[in-house]
Amino acid sequence: MSHVVAVLSDVAALRLEQLGPVARQAVEELLKELETAPRLGVLRHVGAGGRQEVYKTKLEPREGMPGLAVAYVYLPDPPPAAVVIISVTPDDPADEPWF
């Protein structure tokens, strides 16, 4: 896979400020992973004629940080491909379906 540009949206960056430095570091690590593996999460939606893919992934809790749910959009075309993290929230397992 070629290199993908991976960035945070302004909204996600503001949320990370509230979640603290450990969360910021964890998401920075995720951004680096997404540069080489942009389809890392669970596909939640495909839109715009297949040119947008919305994924959700989770970051495990660590000292100083709760588990996090991260939503991002992968835009494979036109080049360069890009990933934009659009949401970072504390993970709530109750939000997951039971099927």
Rank of each mutant, 00 (worst) to 15 (best):
E17S: 07
V11C: 05
A69E: 13
E29I: 02
P93R: 01
V27D: 03
K56S: 14
E60M: 08
G49V: 04
R39E: 14
P79Q: 09
L40A: 13
G47Q: 09
Y55T: 01
P97E: 12
P79I: 02
S2C: 00
V11S: 14
V27Q: 04
V27G: 08
P61T: 11
A48I: 01
E63C: 09
A12T: 02
E63R: 15
P61Q: 11
E29M: 05
L16I: 01
T89M: 13
E35S: 13
H3A: 06
E96V: 07
V73N: 11
E63W: 11
D92F: 09
L14H: 01
T89R: 15
E29C: 03
P80M: 03
E33F: 01
E63I: 14
E53S: 08
L30E: 13
A81Y: 06
V84Y: 08
P61V: 11
E33I: 03
R15S: 15
S9F: 09
G47P: 10
P93E: 01
R24I: 05
K58G: 14
A6T: 01
A26H: 03
M65D: 03
E17A: 11
L59H: 06
V5K: 09
G50L: 03
I86Q: 12
S9D: 13
Q25I: 08
A6K: 02
A37T: 14
V22N: 05
K56A: 15
R62M: 11
R15Q: 15
Q25V: 12
D95E: 11
V84A: 10
V42A: 14
T36L: 12
A48D: 04
V54M: 10
A48P: 00
M65I: 00
G47K: 07
P93H: 02
M1D: 12
R39Q: 12
V11Y: 11
L14P: 00
G49E: 07
Y74D: 12
L34R: 14
P38F: 07
I86C: 09
A13T: 03
E33W: 03
P78L: 10
P79S: 09
A23C: 14
P61S: 12
H3K: 07
R15E: 15
L75F: 11
P79L: 12
E63A: 15
W98F: 00
L30P: 01
K58H: 14
S9W: 09
G20D: 07
E96Y: 09
V5D: 02
V54W: 10
A81E: 08
V70A: 10
P21A: 15
A82W: 07
V22H: 02
S9L: 08
R15L: 10
Q18D: 13
E60A: 14
D91E: 05
A23R: 13
Q52G: 01
P21T: 15
V4I: 13
H3M: 06
K56H: 11
A13Y: 00
D77S: 10
A69Y: 04
Q18A: 13
E33D: 14
L43W: 05
G20S: 06
Y74N: 09
G47L: 07
P66Y: 02
E60D: 13
R44I: 14
A6Y: 00
G67D: 04
L19G: 08
E28V: 09
Y74H: 14
A81C: 06
P97W: 08
V70K: 04
L30I: 06
E28I: 05
W98L: 07
P79R: 13
